[in-house]
Design a protein around this nucleic acid. Structure first.
Lengths: 185, 185
DNA sequence: CGGCAAAAGCAAGCGGGTTTGCTTTAGGAT
DNA sequence: ATCCTAAAGCAAACCCGCTTGCTTTTGCCG
């Protein structure tokens, strides 16, 4: 960003807020003029900066989801994963988190990149797993963490099934108890 | 349907085909006039029947996904699940299956119904599990099948990660190994 | 075979989303 | 403090997706 703290940043945040607000109240199809109006911004500014509604949605989703559910460093893999999973679970119980995840998936085209958001999250996970390995703890692969914990949580949200409290912890337990017996078939 | 085998059916199929074709070649944002043109149909007919692009996408996705990956009845829960998972895996390797799943998720709004498609699929699963229970085999819950098998497969597709051959079978093995009476290895 | 009704086709008009050239503002640099 | 440029605001025109009243076709049924 050329002017991080100035008017650009204010406009960007205002537009992101407007997008999320409209999505949350069900205005899924709100077009750019409507978003701009809610943001108190000229539609032209939105067109010039983001180009299309799709790009704007993707940018808002990635930006806003990036801040949620970091992976803690507690000295125990179990605690790290539990803290992270709890954060994901909480985010997926929040209408904003739900709608952002949905927008993220919806705007993903047939491109081949695995998506910046998930890639960065995978690197964080890898770091936590490496810490565990360095401590001598048994650790699953990133793939397994995604399969056991993230996929079930995300699928509940994407298909509108309820996320019961404690789901994240349950899934982490499943993952970790699959370790000693050997994973995979 | 009032006229199942006549012109209505032809138009519906042509429009569904056009939708899928356009989605597959990356024309995610194709509007109704474009879809109608590719289908060789008057745009008005599409507006009158489906009302909106969103409804049309949802209808096409649900209709076309309904035919894929039925659950076999082999007399063994393991074989039933393996056959089904293989079908899902194959469907998720096909660009059409991928794009249809994506369209399905994308068009799901904040409504509360768990979605007809997944509900019907859940009932099929429950039937297979009931058969296993009646035979005295240990059986997981539908929830567990979705968590262990469907969620990882769907998430790979939705986030553009590769689906390795044999993933479905691996996931079914994991599920069955986690059962209380099952082998822990 | 012939009528009937549902669905498809047609055409014209409306509305709003998008584009574009220019002006104005504001934040960083000198 | 002043200049300078990137970004926002403005207005007008264009394009196109959508609506609507009507006509035409088609397939089911008596």
């Amino acid at each position: 960003m050329t002017r991080p703290g100035g008017r650009s940043a204010r406009v960007r945040d205002a537009v992101h807020d407007a997008v999320v607000d409209l999505l949350v109240i069900g205005e899924i199809n709100a077009a750019i003029p409507k978003i701009a109006e809610k943001a108190g911004v000229n539609p032209t500014s939105v067109y010039r900066r983001w180009g299309s509604r799709e790009q704007l949605l993707l940018d808002a989703a990635v930006t806003r989801l990036r801040a949620t559910s970091p992976i803690p460093d507690t000295g125990s893999l179990r605690e790290d994963l539990l803290g992270w999973a709890e954060g994901v679970e909480r985010s997926m119980c929040d209408p904003r988190g739900q709608i952002l995840l949905r927008a993220l998936v919806a705007t993903l085209g047939p491109e081949k990149e695995p998506l910046e958001h998930l890639r960065a999250r995978g690197e964080d996970l890898q770091a936590a797993l490496d810490r565990a390995t360095a401590r001598g703890e048994p650790a699953p692969s990133v793939e397994d963490v995604l399969d056991f914990v993230l996929a079930p949580l995300y699928l509940r949200v994407l298909f509108r099934r309820p996320v019961e409290p404690g789901t994240g912890a349950l899934l982490v337990d499943r993952l970790l108890s699959s370790l000693p017996a050997g994973r995979g078939g």
